[in-house]
Design a protein around this nucleic acid. Structure first.
Lengths: 239, 239
DNA sequence: ACGACGATTCGGTGCTCACCGAACTATGGC
DNA sequence: GCCATAGTTCGGTGAGCACCGAATCGTCGT
């Protein structure tokens, strides 16, 4: 007995069930998905998806990060490679756009999407960077608005009372496609609402993806020097 | 739904069971094994092994050739690659000698082994080539001994009656490690017996592998100009 | 023709596991 | 404090399948 077949078989078994395979295929775009999203995507009960994720994570096929009540999972790079290898050996044509970090839906989401009630993706990261660049936000341990920032926010989102509630005004929320924080907390929520109200940011029901109108492009450029065009083209903010 | 997970899962499932994995690992040495050998090797009933082989073959993981009452299977090259990939991803160290066409046992068998009751492997192929080179054997459609060959055979294996029985005197038997015919049939059997009797070829019970003594090296060189040393080193006859 | 042997087919058995729903925990925002 | 939402745990159910032994088939060599 030269090589023990058991661990190999055990690993293969993880990819040997349509549901888990579908989960991995969804994750091959390189993004982090939540447990619930995956459950809906592959059409099983949340409990079932959760069980699958647990086994995939404990075997190292997926890596997980828990944030609040969400469980984000990502495909481990080696596992992604193996799956593409497996698919091609199995004679399945994986269309190019399905590969890592591409595909229409995927790129849309990479550009801008909702995270809880605020904006994530490259746009969300750019937003936070712009606030810092303009001296409106201070990023050290945690984050906080400067006094300029408070004034600015009230002008952008009129009728805001920052003293109410226990929700932190700003919260750096780790962005799982950019691996950098974007703007969360109350300020993030207010900004999203303000942008949607102005018709700058468009949000379709039951979808995570956000789009920016041409009015939004102008507005964001004027307000915070954000170049939406280049963000959309894939540029990341360089702060 | 961009990619159908089902065929991928189905393929992975083939490698997802310890028994089938063990079969594939055995086959990774690049040689063709019979169904029964694999059954014994992995420790299951012949019927079980047969079933596994059927599914592996029909999925293209293995290729099969039936010869007489034997079913030879080989690992498809892409499948071998995938398995090595899978093993390394699963964190299993596949020691170098386990890889394609190497390892001690494997190379021994590549050099010389029994096939039915005659000699296969590089030595078997060299034997057939030498007979042809010396004008003792005619290889066209099928094969037949020349009259010189008959005389020679009787001198090497005294007491031989070639007219008895329905067994073909010579039969080119496809060698599944060399992909070229070696000497089968009655002549092959007689030569093996003669060589074993003379102590040229050594055969341990319950093993397929054959070894050649130093007496055998001299004898084969003198009798048929066969260079056992270089065969053992991996050279193949070039006829 | 016959016996030996390798391989296959077929029933039956038992284990594993994917799945769901229901109950529960934890988090977020009011 | 409250409710809503995301996720998890757990028991039970059902399907799939790896396995074996017995019977059968085909080939080989006498």
């Amino acid at each position: 007995m030269t090589v023990d077949p058991v661990p190999i078989a055990r690993y293969a078994a993880l990819l040997a069930h349509p549901t888990r395979t579908a989960i991995c295929l969804a994750l091959i775009d390189g993004r982090a998905w939540t447990s619930g999203e995956l459950a809906r995507h592959v059409g099983v009960a949340p409990s079932t998806a959760s069980e699958h994720l647990t086994s995939l994570v404990s075997a190292g096929v997926l890596s997980e990060v828990r944030q609040g009540r969400h469980r984000y999972v990502r495909l481990a790079p080696e596992a992604g490679q193996l799956i593409e290898n497996l698919a091609s050996t199995a004679g399945v044509v994986m269309s190019a756009p399905t590969s890592l970090r591409s595909g229409r839906v995927a790129t849309d989401l990479l550009f801008a999407r909702t995270c809880y009630d605020h904006i994530a993706g490259r746009l969300g990261v750019a937003l936070l960077d712009a606030l810092v660049a303009h001296g409106l936000l201070l990023l050290s341990v945690g984050a906080s608005l400067t006094s300029d920032g408070e004034v600015w926010l009230k002008s952008v989102a009129p009728g805001t009372d920052l003293s109410v509630g226990r929700r932190p005004v700003v919260r750096p929320c780790l962005d799982w496609t950019e691996r950098r924080p974007h703007l969360g907390g109350l300020a993030g929520s207010l900004l999203r609402t303000a942008f949607v109200d102005r018709g700058w940011v468009l949000q379709r029901p039951r979808e995570r993806g956000l789009t920016v109108s041409s009015a939004g492009e102008h507005g964001l450029a004027e307000l915070l020097d954000i170049d939406v065009q280049s963000l959309r083209a894939g540029a990341v903010s360089t702060l």
